[in-house]
Nucleic acid binder design. Structure first.
Length: 717
DNA sequence: CTAGATTGACTTTTT
DNA sequence: GTCAATCTAG
């Protein structure tokens, strides 16, 4: 095998293919897990025993999947001896690489057509359909969609005495093809275990998953949790199951116990065919960082005592992780800003630096703060911001209502039986957002529809308002909404339009006329953000125009594929806004898993790191082991870490910067005098710090705004 | 009705 | 770990 692998890596790669067996590879941080995985895949194919399309690679997060896919070609090309580039690409194209949910999605779609995953707006809509007694004795004064979801799941799980309301809601979801993520996994595993589907021609993908796959590789096994088990068992039974991961990096325990899941998965193939291997070496972190990280995890400390610790392959850098505590988050931010300016004045580049946080909220706060100094940053989120904007999701729901209702009408004309009214769900979401539509009105209307066995759309669009039940308030508003919807629907220019701008403008002006509460911006910044997200949506609409099938209207294609398209577009153009190439990275610790950065700031912020259960240990451990050379621990109090103030000036530490530049293969000179000079110059010139040379006046205004926000934030706490 | 005890939320992701 | 809301005993 290739000479650039370590002995323990080669052992994994050379392990023979055995059906009905399990191989578990324990791979600590920076141990070359992905590289080994890809070598393994290549070896399986080259040995001739396994065809590319007989290999399935699964992971939980998009990031892990992206990581594998982006490195596939490079690694394969390097190993390649006899194939042409084209053949190589074909081999890679044949591999199945998915997130578990992505795979489940494909299976379910193939078996029952388009489905939608319920989101915030969906829950809000359904919430409109339940009466007071649903909340029992425990209703928060202002029930949030989260509360609702939780209670709903609770009702659903207790099989006995399930309320009628719950049945009604699940019926709507069933009929309209709306599922929760948990259900998605559930259904997929049902399709995979059912024997019925194997006969049908159209269920090719499902069938191939069941029959064709010979090797199932699970990347990041520490992310698995029990409710995925039925699906995973189905998929890997009888195959060779290869697991890569590190239980110390298990940070999704809030989804369910990883220990339990692993016990079950390791037991899938009974008998002796279970092997465990370790990748021992760490090529990423400095010994100083690893020593500190090891202190964080009790199990690790024990391993170290027993002499089992993995070998760190880098030399000492001479600088221990820098620990600082602040009583005020603003001080913390200012410290970070100052350190960044020092680092950049020495040998570091902005893009070397990553700031990791516990929460998405905190991430935004830091991004805003640095932005106000003109320091651009790039957020490493799994999804682009606009896709998670509930306002955008609402607009998409509007498009759904129009598209689905339109189809319902044309089907009705052909007199076909289409009992399940597919538009009900989206329409409820839409009506629920109308200002004057009370829960009660919507409930009464919907019950009336159930009684008459008709769709909600048909009812509000064709039954005269005077015939509606008297208890419905704000009839005119609701019917007016129906009339306006109808206008858009009958207007072929809208539904069959090829003009993204036209579509967007129509849908926005409809939303504007209706005065939907949720679209009202609460501030200038809010409005600007919405505008930006609309622009992003426009980009995807335009993209859809270029790649849609010939026989499909643009809107339908967009509704069908916008999620996937946005993700892949985002993946290919990850920094749409920030102008310069050299930007700082900001991420939650969860999203940073699998990545590495020369310099890492771990932000304790408002004290979440003080709450340490053993699972939080892992989060801290993951965060710390992202750092290759320099690690800052801010407000991260942990019993295992002793906080000795290392007050040495990093900027002037030539020895460290020489180490740094060598490690990153850079020819930059480490000259402390000029670093200090640069820093002084920056300080003098801008009174603070600005990379992008923004004029001082706008800078200070932005800074003041930010300060006000921050103070408000602290006061709220 | 009130003091004291108990419980749960806070946070992280998946299309 | 902390805070707020709810529950229970007297």
């Amino acid at each position: 095998m290739a000479a650039d692998l370590t002995p323990s890596q080669s052992k994994v790669v050379d392990f023979p293919y055995l059906p009905n067996s399990t191989l578990k590879v324990v791979a600590g941080p920076g141990s070359g897990k992905t590289l080994t995985l890809l070598h393994k895949v290549y070896h399986l194919i080259e040995s001739g025993e396994i065809a590319p399309n007989e290999i399935l690679i699964l992971s939980l997060t998009n990031k892990a999947v992206d990581n594998v896919i982006t490195r596939l070609f490079d690694v394969f090309e390097q190993l390649n001896e006899k194939h042409t580039e084209e053949q190589l690409r074909e081999i890679i194209g044949d591999l199945e690489v998915h997130t578990v949910h992505g795979l489940a999605n494909r299976v379910v779609i193939e078996n029952e057509g388009i489905i939608n995953i319920i989101e915030e707006n969906g829950w809000r809509g359904l919430m409109k359909l339940v009466s007071e007694d649903f909340w029992k004795n425990k209703r928060p004064r202002m029930p949030s969609t989260k509360d609702f979801k939780k209670l709903f799941e609770q009702y659903k799980n207790q099989k006995t005495g399930t309320k009628d309301v719950v049945k009604k809601l699940t019926d709507i979801m069933q009929n309209c093809g709306v599922v929760t993520n948990e259900e998605l996994i559930d259904r997929a595993s049902r399709y995979l275990s059912s024997d019925l589907v194997s006969e049908s021609e159209t269920m090719q993908y499902t069938r191939e998953l069941k029959g064709k796959i010979k090797v199932v590789i699970i990347d990041e096994f520490q992310d698995l949790y029990p409710s995925l088990l039925p699906l995973l068992r189905r998929i890997s039974l009888g195959k060779q199951l290869i697991l890569f991961g590190d239980s110390n990096q298990s940070i999704y325990s809030f989804l369910g116990s990883n220990k339990e899941a692993m016990r079950a998965i390791e037991g899938i193939h009974t008998g002796q065919d279970f092997h465990v291997m370790h990748l021992h070496d760490n090529f990423r972190c400095t010994p100083e960082i690893m020593a500190a990280a090891t202190q964080v995890i009790p199990a690790k400390r024990k391993e170290m005592k027993d002499g089992e610790i993995e070998k760190v392959c880098k030399d000492k850098c001479g600088v221990k992780p820098i620990m600082e505590n602040f009583s005020n988050p603003l001080d913390e931010l200012e410290f970070v800003r100052d350190q960044i300016s020092q680092l950049v004045c020495a040998s570091a580049r902005l893009s070397d630096i990553a700031i990791l946080t516990r929460t998405n909220n905190q991430m935004q706060l830091i991004a805003d703060h640095l932005q106000s100094y003109g320091i651009n940053s790039h957020k490493l989120t799994a999804q682009p911001d606009w896709m998670t904007d509930t306002r955008i999701q609402f607009l998409i729901d509007l498009m759904k209502v129009i598209s689905l209702s339109h189809r319902e009408e044309s089907l009705e004309r052909k007199n076909s039986m289409n009992r399940p009214w597919k538009s009900d769900f989206s329409l409820i979401v839409t009506l629920g957002a109308l200002k004057g539509a009370t829960n009660q009105s919507i409930q009464i209307l919907y019950n009336e529809c159930l009684r008459r066995d008709t769709s909600l759309w048909r009812y509000i669009s064709s039954v005269p308002v005077s015939d509606w039940p008297t208890a419905v308030t704000n009839k005119r508003k609701i019917s007016n909404c129906a009339i306006e919807l109808q206008k858009l629907m009958n207007n072929g220019e809208f539904l069959y339009s090829d003009d993204p701008m036209h579509i967007l403008r129509e849908i926005c002006s409809f939303a504007h006329e209706m005065g939907f509460q949720m679209l009202q911006p609460t501030s200038d910044g809010d409005a600007e953000q919405f505008r930006q997200h609309l622009e992003d949506m426009y980009t995807i609409l335009k993209l859809c125009l270029t790649n849609r099938p010939n026989d499909m209207p643009l809107i339908e294609w967009f509704l069908h594929s916008h999620f996937e398209q946005s993700l892949s577009y985002y993946h290919q153009n990850p920094v749409p806004r920030a102008g310069s190439r050299d930007v700082l990275k900001i991420s939650t610790i969860h999203s940073s898993k699998g990545l590495e950065f020369p310099i890492v700031f771990l932000m304790g912020g408002l004290s979440w790191f003080q709450t340490f259960s053993q699972f939080e240990d892992n989060v801290l451990y993951v965060g710390m082991t992202r750092a290759k050379n320099l690690l800052y621990l801010l407000n991260t109090k942990h019993p295992g870490l002793d906080c000795e103030p290392t007050k040495r000036n990093i900027m002037a530490n030539e020895k460290f910067w020489r180490y740094y530049n060598t490690d990153l293969n850079r020819a930059t000179a480490a000259d402390s005098m000029s670093a200090i000079r640069r820093y002084d110059c920056l300080q003098r010139k801008y009174g603070g710090f600005s990379i992008n040379h923004r004029p001082f006046s706008t800078l200070s205004v932005a800074r003041n705004n930010k300060l006000i926000k921050l103070v408000a934030y602290i006061a709220r706490k």
